[in-house]
């Protein structure tokens, strides 16, 4: 039993030591993420020309259902009332308009400044106290002593790095920027099936006729199916697996084998900057 407790204490001590201030600093340095330690940061981000705008549309393959209705009426004892089947939700495409570009970021900061020194001092005291407590818990058990030594070692390291001299950082980096502008479906978007066009409303719905046409297409996927927007069109990359997944979800009597299930299929339409992001 005692060995078990000692083992537990040792494990906690190792965990503490490995997540200690000095160890964390060493990991950050080793991983090249020193900028996480920056303080008093002053940045200026200058957008680079050439941002690209695109509409990404996702067609969900699973059948969505309305949330079940919770009734407040008390149940009649001894009478089983079956829950009403959840209503099917209309098909809704998921739209997202994004702008992608690069920023040139000018970054000035201090490292090992006053905030660093105060934090390191606090950790030094806490870790020293922890090491003393672990050691005092069982002065004869070797594993406890080992754990106390590990924490003490981290404490020593923390004490040293607390006195690291303040550095100044000034660097320039190119940083990619992705801005999600809107998540409604824009005017003019339509689902095109075999030469017929079914407008998509702002909420992504294609209407019951559009949904029925898509469902029929899924049962007999021969004609092309895609999306159109302002003269552009893009074919929906629906594979046999996706068609099978749709049919299994929407028709209990469907018989097919789906190898790689997908939640949805996506298509992207690139447009000139500002085409879809103006307020309408």
């Amino acid at each position: 039993m005692k060995a078990l407790i000692s083992g537990g204490v040792a494990a906690v001590a190792v965990a503490l030591a490995s997540s200690g201030c000095f160890t964390s600093w060493a990991i950050t340095e080793g991983a090249g993420q020193q900028k996480l330690l920056d303080e008093s940061v002053h940045e200026s981000a200058v957008p680079s020309p050439g941002a690209r705008e695109a509409l990404e549309v996702r067609l969900p393959l699973a059948q969505a259902y309305e949330a079940p209705v919770v009734t407040t009426a008390p149940a009649t004892p001894g009478v089983f009332t079956p829950a009403a089947p959840a209503a099917k939700r209309p098909l809704a495409l998921v739209c997202q308009v994004t702008q992608r570009g690069d920023d040139t970021v000018y970054h000035a900061a201090f490292r090992y400044g006053s905030t660093w020194k105060k934090t390191a001092a606090v950790f030094f005291v806490l870790e020293a106290a922890t090491a003393a407590l672990i050691y005092a818990s069982d002065t004869k058990d070797p594993s406890t002593q080992l754990a106390a030594a590990a924490v003490a070692l981290d404490t020593l390291g923390t004490g040293i790095i607390a006195f690291a001299p303040r550095k100044e950082v000034y660097r320039t980096e190119r940083r990619p920027d992705v801005t999600v502008v809107r998540q409604d479906c824009p005017d003019g978007l339509a689902l095109a099936i075999g030469g017929e066009s079914y407008p998509v409303d702002a909420a992504g719905r294609v209407g019951e006729l559009g949904e029925a046409a898509l469902d029929e297409w899924m049962r007999d996927p021969r004609a092309p199916v895609g999306l159109t927007l302002g003269g552009q069109d893009a074919r929906l990359p629906l594979g046999a697996d996706d068609v099978c997944g749709w049919n299994l979800q929407h028709h209990p009597d469907a018989r097919c084998v789906q190898r790689l299930p997908r939640v949805d299929v996506a298509v992207t339409l690139a447009v000139p900057l500002g085409t879809l992001t103006r307020a309408e």
Partner: peptide, 19 residues
Amino acid sequence: ARHDGERAAFCAANAEDAR
């Protein structure tokens, strides 16, 4: 501060850039 000015100039010429 000079780079902030560059950003302001860019944005004045690119009002449709969401950044």
